[in-house]
Amino acid sequence: MQARDPLEMLIEELGDPELQESLEKMVKLVKALNRSGLLDVLLAMADEEVVARLSSMLVTTGTMKLADNIEELTRAAGEVAQALSEPVEPVPLSELVSSLRDPEVLRGLARLLKVLKALGRA
C-alpha cells in the first residue's frame, strides 16, 4: 500500500461540508474567546509552573478524600437539610435522655464524636 500524501488527504477532507461547517463554528468560537480575553488567561495558565501550583493546590490528600466521599456527604447534607426544615418544639430534659435510646440518635452521636476527633487532629 502506497502511503498517501498528507496534504492531498487534507484537501480532500476540506471538501466535506460537515467539516466546513465545523470549521466556521470553530473560527467564531476562537474569535469570541479572544474578544472576551479568555484566551489570554488560558495561555498564561498553560505555563508549567502555574499548572504545577494549581495541581498541588487542587490535588491534595484532603480533596482526594473529599471527592471520594462526596456521595455520602451530599446524602448526609440532604438528610440534615430535611431535618432542619421540619418544625420542632423545645425538648424537655427528660425526653432528651429517653431519646438517647433511639439507635439513630446513638449512631449520629457516635459519628459526631468521630468528627470531633478528626477536627481535633486537623
Partner: peptide, 24 residues
C-alpha cells in the same frame, strides 16, 4: 510526559501510602 509530570506528582504526593496509611 513533562506536561503531565506536575499533575501526576500532585496526585502521587496526595496519595502517598505514608500519608493515607489509614486508608482512602
Amino acid at each position: 510526559p513533562e506536561r503531565w509530570a506536575p499533575i501526576f506528582r500532585a496526585y502521587f504526593n496526595a496519595t502517598d501510602p505514608r500519608v493515607i496509611s489509614g486508608g482512602w
